[in-house]
Amino acid sequence: MLSQIYPSSVVTIANASAAEEQLHPDEACAVRHALPQRQAEFAAGRACAHRALRELGFPDVTVPRAADRSPLWPDGVVGSISHCEGFCGAVVARRSDVRGLGLDVERRGRVGQDLHDLICTPREKAALGSATDACDPVEVLFSAKESFYKAYHPATKVFLDFLDVDLKVDFSEGSFSAMLLRDDAPSLYGARIVKGRFGLTRDRVFTGVVLES
Rank of each mutant, 00 (worst) to 15 (best):
F148C: 05
F148D: 05
Y149W: 02
K150T: 02
K150M: 08
A151V: 04
A151F: 03
A151S: 13
A151Q: 02
Y152N: 04
H153S: 06
H153R: 10
P154Y: 00
P154V: 00
P154C: 05
A155H: 04
A155N: 08
T156E: 09
T156S: 09
T156V: 03
K157A: 10
K157I: 08
K157Q: 15
K157S: 05
V158K: 01
V158Y: 02
V158D: 02
V158N: 01
V158L: 03
F159V: 11
F159D: 06
F159M: 14
L160Y: 01
D161I: 08
D161N: 15
D161M: 08
D161H: 12
F162Q: 07
L163F: 06
L163T: 14
L163V: 13
D164G: 00
D164C: 03
V165L: 12
V165Y: 13
V165P: 08
V165H: 06
D166V: 13
D166G: 13
D166I: 10
D166W: 12
D166K: 11
D166S: 14
D166C: 10
L167P: 03
L167N: 14
K168Y: 03
K168H: 07
K168E: 12
V169L: 11
V169N: 12
D170S: 15
D170T: 10
F171W: 06
F171C: 11
F171N: 09
F171G: 15
F171M: 14
S172G: 08
S172A: 12
E173K: 09
S175V: 13
S175G: 10
S175Q: 09
S175M: 12
F176M: 07
F176L: 11
S177C: 15
S177R: 14
S177E: 12
A178Y: 01
A178W: 04
